[in-house]
């Protein structure tokens, strides 16, 4: 998404990226970034919370006016009610090494099948 933002920006269209994967967006060099520290999936606001969603959209618009330098990040004030997702997402547990490898093996097999079906596109 940041690469698309960069392409648009280089062609005269200002952008704000909304996201929750801070390291990925910042390293990619997004021109303006509104960061919400949520689990991946709801960077425009918590599900079922339209008031928060409007507030985040409002902050995103404000960033067009306030960002003065390329690569500006602003953080929204919202917090997810719990923090366990920080540890749990893509958690690698050595006790589950065999299951992880099996899942990877299955994924590679299906990726190969998909490639046979659709090519590299």
């Amino acid at each position: 998404m940041s690469l698309t933002a960069r392409h648009l920006e280089a062609n005269g269209i200002p952008t704000v990226v909304l996201g929750s994967a801070r390291d990925i967006v910042e390293q990619a060099g997004a021109p303006r970034f509104l960061f919400t520290d949520f689990p991946l999936g709801n960077p425009a606001g918590a599900p079922g919370n339209p008031a928060m969603q409007v507030e985040i959209a409002r902050m995103a618009l404000r960033l067009f006016e306030t960002a003065e330098t390329p690569g500006t990040t602003v953080r929204t004030p919202f917090r997810w009610p719990v923090d366990d997702w920080r540890m749990n997402f893509m958690h690698v547990d050595v006790a589950e090494r065999e299951a992880l490898l099996a899942a990877g093996e299955d994924r590679r097999r299906r990726q190969a099948l998909r490639k046979e079906k659709f090519g590299d596109a």
Binding site: I13, G19, V25
Partner: peptide, 10 residues
């Protein structure tokens, strides 16, 4: 005729 964009990555 879009003047500015919000890009939202999941």
């Amino acid at each position: 005729g879009v003047d500015a964009t919000l890009l939202v990555g999941l």
